[in-house]
Design a protein around this nucleic acid. Structure first.
Lengths: 225, 225
DNA sequence: TCAGCTAAAATTGAATACAATATTCCATCT
DNA sequence: AGATGGAATATTGTATTCAATTTTAGCTGA
């Protein structure tokens, strides 16, 4: 773990542990043993504990007093809810963004698409966020974007698990290109409609593919409408 | 600061400092001097630093490496955005909740209204959250509710500043009663319409009353539509 | 008076040590 | 064999100490 110049140990630990969770190196339910993990990262427990506080705020880990911290898990219902939240926030942000977008914004989104198309499937989660945030950034809603990033990060570990199916990525790329096309046309209604459908499709595919391995479905929760 | 049985020092510090920020005891821009604050709270700096990490994740404070932590401030644009986010999430949650509400849910909301009507204006922020969360809890969307609580908490410090105007609280109470009435009738469309108007009115009043004292308005941001 | 430099003081970030709590292991009893 | 109790071990939570960085104060020179 390189000591980057202007970054505290705590921040570095947050990034490292978050990455391990998102990539599945630290699967859900894994206890984070402070002594062991601190030794492995070559730091004391103090910055690690601070990092754990932050990761907990992000919902990636859960701590119980005097019992320690485990990597959190999302039920299918919670995962579904996260995509619902994405629909609510992202359709609004996209609608705000489209009338404010210029050629530089389209070019940026196109660049992210090109880069992600040429890249490794394991990087999809990162590129997906970069694409979506590029799409919404012109809205100027910084707080919502920050909240949304948290949602993306949390859902990404499951997205990453599912992406052995490369066909899904191809479909998502097609959608991404079409979203930019609608934005270029200034077609808010069409863009928002596709975005909603895009997110719902991703959610359906993910929940379906994960549903086989998860029998602890919470009740009282409907499908993404 | 009483030592409650099953709560870590860090959690207690989070609550205490959050409360001080929300009530204005720690105004925006105030530096949090770790040594001084830890001494005042009768704890070491270690749990205080952990608490600061959590408060930072909540957006209530901002930390700069090696320079310390200050109570965060929201621009008018950011405050406006928070109410916009509330509109997006709360109208959705309320629409989901109404068909799922039973007499116990209405009674709970009514009880919060009665309690807040009989209470001190300074408690309004807490009661307001309790009311709104009671209204949406039947939706079953726990993640969204948690995110929403963060938004309410952060905006509350400004709500608390403005509430010298008691007339605003009276109007809000009327709206609250009418929201419950719509829910009782199962009128999703009417309820959502009133809720949207309710939140937008609160936002307009707040921004208008704060606008006089804040000349640092961010540009490029529209009014709540 | 202002600018620049240096040392001292203040503050933050992290390591180490100590206290408190939970878990595991072992012995004993039924 | 299973249950119970106690001691040892592991782990977490927090205090104290040390190291690194920033800020402040004072001095000097132009």
């Amino acid at each position: 773990m390189a000591k980057l110049g202007r970054q505290s140990l705590t921040d570095q630990i947050v990034s490292e542990v978050r990455q391990r969770i998102i990539t599945g190196q630290l699967p859900e339910g894994t206890p984070l043993r402070q002594e062991k993990l601190a030794a492995e990262l070559g730091v004391s427990r103090v910055p690690l504990r601070e990092a754990i506080r932050q990761l907990e705020a992000e919902g990636l880990v859960v701590t119980e007093l005097h019992k320690g911290t485990v990597v959190s898990s999302l039920s299918l219902a919670e995962l579904t809810e996260m995509f619902e939240i994405r629909v609510q926030l992202e359709t609004w942000l996209f609608a705000l963004a489209i009338p404010r977008m210029g050629e530089a914004d389209f070019a940026l989104a196109d660049a992210v698409i090109a880069e992600s198309a040429a890249s490794d499937v394991n990087s999809w989660g990162d590129f997906n966020w970069r694409f979506h945030s590029a799409l919404y950034a012109p809205s100027g809603r910084t707080i919502a974007l920050k909240m949304l990033k948290g949602v993306h990060d949390n859902a990404n570990r499951y997205v990453n698990l599912q992406l052995a199916v490369v066909a899904d990525v191809e479909h998502e790329l097609v959608d991404h290109r079409n979203l930019v096309a609608f934005a270029r046309l200034g077609d808010v209604e069409g863009g928002v409609k596709l975005l909603r459908k895009h997110i719902e499709t991703v959610a359906d595919n993910l929940v379906r593919s994960l549903g086989d391995g998860r029998k602890d479905q919470e009740d009282g929760q409907e499908d993404v409408a």
